[in-house]
């Protein structure tokens, strides 16, 4: 119990951020209509590629001769970048179709 309490106290700001982001996330997403759920899914999916930041940090701090880390990390960046670029591009493609419909109406 003491350990848990001290852990929370040491990371208070991070935990605030976590809790409020959860609440914010639920609020924002709940207001999205069914019509847009497929674009939402693929857009959110693209955002999950944010994990790429971790891979970039890892690669920038690893030794230039540590080929294990370099190759696996670069693979991670590549895969996450496919997720990010592909996800946003395909979402844009979908939403463009919605938009076009409106202007021609």
């Amino acid at each position: 119990m003491d350990q848990l309490l001290s852990f929370i106290n040491e990371n208070l700001l991070l935990i605030y951020l976590l809790v409020f982001t959860v609440i914010l996330g639920f609020e924002v997403i709940s207001s999205i209509p069914t019509v847009l759920h497929t674009p939402l899914m693929s857009g959110a999916n693209a955002i999950s590629g944010i994990v790429i930041i971790g891979a970039i940090i890892l690669l920038r701090t690893s030794s230039p001769t540590d080929y294990f880390t370099l190759s696996l990390g670069a693979l991670g960046i590549l895969l996450a970048m496919v997720n990010v670029v592909g996800g946003f591009a395909v979402t844009n493609r979908m939403l463009e179709m919605f938009k076009k419909k409106k202007s021609t109406k």
């Binding site: 982001t21 959860v22 914010l24 996330g25 639920f26 924002v28 997403i29 944010i50 994990v51």
Partner: peptide
């Protein structure tokens, strides 16, 4: 990363 990840987690959970 924390904010982005949690937002996606929330969106996936709600859907």
């Amino acid at each position: 990363m924390l904010v982005g990840g949690i937002l996606v987690g929330a969106s996936g959970t709600i859907l």
